[in-house]
Nucleic acid binder design. Structure first.
Ligand code: FES
Ligand code: FES
Lengths: 145, 145
DNA sequence: ATATATTAATACCTTTTTATCCTTTTTATA
DNA sequence: TATAAAAAGGATAAAAAGGTATTAATATAT
């Protein structure tokens, strides 16, 4: 497994996709999102439902419904998305799984690991959801395959 | 979940513990290791069996038997341990879970993520198993709680 | 108002990971 | 040679993650 859980990977890709597709208003359906990011449809549905409850994205039922991201939410940083899905253990936890990460009782990898952990956090904190809309439009970056 | 799987966390802590305790020759039993790194004994047993089969650590059955790490193996880097347990997906995989990580079809996070991923690799590659023996002896670093 | 089609939400099932128990094999030594 | 100590291996179970089928909500046409 990678740095993020599968659930979190799908969540991040979906959030990018939805932000991109609803930048000019409008909504996008679950099937389209699932296809756009190559994820299992119903599993993604559950993830989006959760993100919706937590206010990371928005949704509307019924015909012409779908998922979207409002102006305020699209300014959110990726760290909010990761925190909503995986919690913030990735940002604060010990790399070797000690109960607490601390300077007073550090694990052998602590000094090196804390820097890396912080860089992961900064990367996510300093990146907004909407930030890649243009790259996606230009086909510079991809969300599947 | 953190950067490493639970299995991998236990493996790394155990490897540090065994290297430290068998630096002057001798062996250490599974119960002692499990206690020393605060891990479930029988689950750890499986992990150590696996590490032993893969040549990361060594073991001896019978009275006065136990686990140990020979001179050659203790020079191994942590990346070997992680690779043995979790594979090398952590070192090569896409942060957002795309099938392949590549420059030609990069995900939005690719440029930032590849640096971080490489730092994780370098940290592990440049750290040997035996490297923390002294710190552990001095109580500067810990493997439990 | 009501039926209908559309769509998200929920309840359910499967697989993987993590953890435990029990039996077998190996081996030092009494 | 018998005994006990220790890892190895098989079988099982609980928990978490991953994935699928069904249900509920709603806009719109009639
Ligand atoms: S104690 Fe392990 S990373 Fe801080
Ligand atoms: S393509 Fe995603 S990290 Fe390289």
């Amino acid at each position: 497994m990678g740095v993020f859980s599968k659930t979190c990977e799908y969540a991040l890709r979906a959030v990018f996709f939805i932000a991109h597709r609803t930048a000019e208003g409008g909504k996008v359906g679950i099937k389209e999102v699932a296809d756009g990011i190559a994820s299992p449809e119903y599993f993604l549905a559950k993830i989006l439902q959760d993100l919706s409850r937590k206010g990371i994205i928005q949704s509307a039922k019924g015909p012409h419904g779908g998922f979207f991201i409002d102006d305020k939410s699209r300014k959110n940083s990726l760290s909010e998305v990761v925190k909503a899905v995986d919690g913030n253990g990735l940002f604060t936890g010990c790399g070797l799984g000690l109960e607490y990460c601390s300077e007073v009782n550090p694990c052998p990898l602590h000094n090196q690991f804390k820097d890396i952990r912080n860089q992961i956090y900064l990367m996510l904190k300093n990146t907004s959801i909407e930030q890649f809309n243009e790259d996606l439009s230009l086909g510079i970056t991809a969300l599947k395959k």
